[in-house]
Simulated scan of single mutants.
Amino acid sequence: MGNWGGMAVARAAVAELREFAAEAGCAVDRGEELGGGWSAVHYPDQPDGAAAALARRTGAPVFTVAYLDSDVGFVEAATFSGGRWKALLNRRTAEDYGIPLDRFPVEAALAGALDWAAAAGLLTADPDGIRAALTGSEAFAEDLTHRLLGALGLDFTALGEESA
């Protein structure tokens, strides 16, 4: 059985992010420090608008993803200043579920991701890597999430080890 939960990544301590996620309506299962002041929390269910709510609460850019049975990932990211972008991970599989791909244009997501990375102070964002994650296909959407976070410039080594 796959993952039906989600996660949030933000520049905040795990305890803060856990508290903020709870305030945004997310029940947190676990959390881990990712390094560089970034943390991730995982939860069994993600309410809509969690990224924007967390960005307002943390005062920092926030990346969230919700999984559909580990087959598809719905990314939502936001900045404190109101910038937002959405993306769909595992597009080929999403199409099998009947999810309309045109609601998640790759170029708009790429532009939003690069703006988000700049707002987050992530100077090593890789546009080609971001595009590859947004258009790639994997057995598990979580693998594409890790690729996307890495391409955005986040060190997710702890996340990868925890999720393995």
Rank of each mutant, 00 (worst) to 15 (best):
L152A: 11
A50H: 05
A53M: 04
G31N: 02
R84F: 03
G121N: 07
C26A: 15
A8H: 04
N3G: 06
L144P: 00
A133N: 07
A141M: 04
R103K: 13
H146K: 13
V62W: 05
W116H: 11
L101H: 05
A94N: 01
F74N: 05
W38E: 01
G36K: 10
A117P: 03
A109C: 09
F74I: 03
A8L: 02
D143W: 10
L68D: 15
R11Q: 15
R92S: 13
T79G: 14
E32F: 09
T157I: 14
D143T: 11
G121F: 08
E142A: 08
W116S: 08
V65Q: 06
A118Q: 14
F80W: 12
W85N: 04
F20G: 08
L110Q: 07
D29W: 11
A40H: 05
F156H: 15
L123I: 10
D155H: 03
A133R: 03
A109G: 00
I130D: 07
A53L: 11
E95K: 12
H146G: 09
A117I: 01
R30G: 10
R30K: 13
F140W: 14
R18M: 08
A21R: 04
A51E: 12
E138F: 00
A13C: 10
L54W: 06
D71K: 11
P61M: 01
G153H: 05
A120L: 02
A158T: 09
P47N: 08
V72R: 01
G49S: 02
V75G: 04
G49P: 06
S163C: 14
G98R: 09
G2P: 12
A87H: 10
G37T: 01
L68Q: 11
L134G: 07
T145H: 05
D71P: 04
V72W: 06
V106S: 06
F80K: 13
D128S: 13
W85V: 06
P100F: 09
A151C: 06
A8T: 04
Y43Q: 14
V9N: 01
F63Q: 03
L134T: 09
Y97R: 11
A27I: 13
P61K: 02
E16M: 00
A15G: 04
H42K: 13
R103P: 04
R30N: 11
A120F: 03
F63G: 08
G112R: 01
F140M: 08
A139R: 09
T93M: 12
A66S: 14
R91P: 01
R84S: 05
A13T: 15
R147N: 11
A158I: 00
F74C: 03
V72Y: 01
A132E: 14
A164I: 14
L149T: 02
G59C: 01
I99H: 06
W85G: 00
P47E: 07
A120D: 00
G59H: 00
R92T: 10
T157R: 15
A111H: 12
R56Y: 06
E76F: 11
A132V: 05
G129I: 09
G5F: 03
A108F: 09
W85Y: 13
G150W: 09
L34H: 02
E23F: 10
N90H: 04
A66N: 12
V62Y: 04
P105Y: 03
V28Q: 08
D126R: 11
W85Q: 06
L152S: 00
E19D: 11
G121D: 06
A15E: 13
L123P: 08
